[in-house]
Computed example of a mutant assay.
Amino acid sequence: MCRWLAYSGNAVQLETVLFRSRHSLIDQSLHSKLGATTTNGDGFGLGWYQHPHDIPYRYRSIQPAWNDRNLRELARAVSAPMFVAHVRSATHTPVQETNCHPFRHRRWIFAHNGLIQSFPLVRRELLVAIEPGRFSALEGSTDSEVMFYLAMTFGLEHEPVPALERMAGFVEATARRHGIDDPLNMTVCACDGEQMVAVRYSSEGNSRSLFHSTSFKHLHELYPDDPRIAAAGEDAYLIVSEPLVDLPDVWAEVPEATAIIVRGPQVEYRQFVPVTPQ
């Protein structure tokens, strides 16, 4: 499948997380330990905010993340208080830039790991449920982008978690009408520059891996001389497909069927329950 991470905190250089950690996201693109596939080389993408109310910047490429010199230069040059990075392992759809995450619509960016089972069988029905005013913004052919625009249709900009619950419920109901069991597996992240919303959920209760940092204050105590941790600040928060292993004992697994909402120093955890839209 794929690997992704999301960061919120003080502005830090992107390379701090993408390259410098021992099991960084770039390392995971080659040597994933917990993913469905070891190598995630079918493209990558970054989305980041310089200021909370700005339209996010984005860089995507079909190059493997470990082999893109421009990515290393960009990650060294850019500092941001919120960003999402994703390395892709393609499933149903081709390797092309428009299929690389994160997807963007206005202030929102969206990244996904997982799949809709038998997506080609339900693709048309899911597509026609997208609000007509948003349909023209679709660029690629992935199930992930369809999930994003369904969530937008169901109110992501106003109530992110309920919108994602309605999206998940709609996908499940549609797939089951086609006789598809356990249709949805996802870890997703949606950001608008002010908040970061992540969900771990699957129809069968066996989701892809997802972890969150427990305490950057504790990290400051463990690594008082590490400038990377000092730069992030005590309220920094990371959500990752796999732990960055050079920072031991500070990761907690996100439970099944859980949503996380991060707004600055405030972090909320709640149960995630799909709802079939009326």
Rank of each mutant, 00 (worst) to 15 (best):
A198S: 12
V95E: 04
L126V: 05
S29V: 08
E256N: 04
L210I: 09
P265A: 11
F216S: 01
W251F: 08
V122S: 02
Q28A: 13
G114V: 14
L5E: 05
V254F: 08
H105G: 01
R228E: 05
V199A: 08
G47K: 06
R124P: 00
I180C: 06
A252S: 12
I261F: 05
G133S: 10
L150Y: 02
V267W: 07
V146L: 10
N185W: 15
C2I: 06
R60W: 13
T187K: 01
E221Q: 15
H53S: 13
V273M: 12
E131C: 13
L127P: 01
A36I: 05
E157S: 15
R20T: 01
H23F: 03
V254W: 10
P248E: 02
F119W: 11
V273H: 06
Q28C: 10
L115I: 05
K33F: 04
R134K: 06
S79H: 05
P243F: 13
E221R: 13
Y57N: 15
I229T: 00
D27G: 01
L126Y: 10
R3F: 12
S202H: 12
P183Y: 11
R72C: 07
L46Y: 09
R72E: 07
P255N: 03
V161P: 08
N113E: 11
A90N: 03
F44C: 02
T39V: 15
E268K: 14
F148Q: 07
I229Y: 01
T16N: 08
S61W: 10
A168E: 08
R104M: 12
V254L: 05
S136N: 06
D143Y: 11
N185H: 14
R104D: 00
E145C: 14
Y57M: 12
M152I: 10
F103C: 04
E165W: 15
V146F: 02
A111Y: 12
E125T: 14
T37P: 03
N70K: 14
A198P: 01
E157G: 15
V188G: 05
E172R: 15
C191H: 04
V87D: 07
P120A: 07
R76G: 13
F19W: 10
Y269R: 09
G133A: 13
D54S: 11
R263S: 11
E159Y: 13
L126C: 07
I239D: 01
M147P: 00
A129M: 06
R166D: 02
G114W: 07
R270M: 13
C2Y: 07
G41Y: 09
V128N: 02
A168H: 13
F135D: 00
T258P: 01
T174L: 13
A230R: 06
L46T: 03
